[in-house]
Design a binder for these strands. Structure first.
Lengths: 122, 122
DNA sequence: AAGCATCTGCAGCCAATGGTTGCATGAGGG
DNA sequence: CCCTCATGCAACCATTGGCTGCAGATGCTT
């Protein structure tokens, strides 16, 4: 058997820019909080046109964050929960990494500061 | 006295797009991991020109993520650790929120599934 | 069956922006 | 005094996020 949970690969650029755009994040938020919906349905809850929504949905789909499914004459989009979960983990990982590096730099800075004080008082 | 740590305000669009762009994130990563540097210094470690780097630095500065400081004849940029820390918290918060909503949806889906099985077997 | 309503998809246009090159300027080091 | 080198500004191009408009498909109503 393979690993039970996908390895938290480093989030790639496509993913980042997918969730980096404010409008796209808004659309994604709607899908996450309100469940599956069509492009037109989403367009009604968002301050821009259906076509813009459709483009965003295409980007989100290419990034693997959502999937499309024909239903009646509509096309219903739905969040890929596994993929989004993977993204949230990756985001947390990036945040943690920045945190560690910042902490390391802060320690260095404080050490240098202390050293300067010692030298100037000698 | 006010709250000791800044309230983790929802991350605004300027911040998101600042860290959403791959090149900008790369520049920011360099500043975080290698410490303060000038535009030219950064340009040497990145696959695009100094002018592009300068534009990214301007965006990062407008977003409050870095600050500029003249040093010799260079201009040195440095990460604002407090601000970046704030961003990492906000990112974690967004991730957690998605997580919660996904969990809620998953529970609903499983409940519906169980309900269907019960109905079809009755 | 005819027609209407509505949802999708495609094409073309505009503005913002991430990238480039080129040039002018200013500050230190021979 | 000149040369180097880092900065900043401007012009230009490609991509992309927004729009409008139109054509095609499909379901509902008369």
């Amino acid at each position: 058997m393979t690993v039970p949970t996908e390895a938290p690969r480093p989030i790639d650029d496509e993913l980042w820019s997918a969730i980096g755009d404010p409008s796209r994040r808004r659309v994604l938020d709607l899908l996450v909080s309100q469940g599956p919906a069509s492009a037109s349905g989403l367009a009604g809850r968002v301050p821009f046109t259906r076509q813009a929504v459709a483009k965003h949905l295409a980007v989100l789909e290419r990034a693997g964050l959502i999937s499309r499914r024909p239903r009646d004459r509509e096309v219903v989009y739905e969040v890929d929960t596994g993929r989004l979960d993977q993204v949230t983990r990756a985001m947390a990982e990036v945040a943690a990494q920045w945190d560690r590096r910042l902490a390391a730099i802060k320690r260095l800075a404080e050490a240098a500061h202390a050293e300067n004080k010692k030298r100037s008082s000698s």
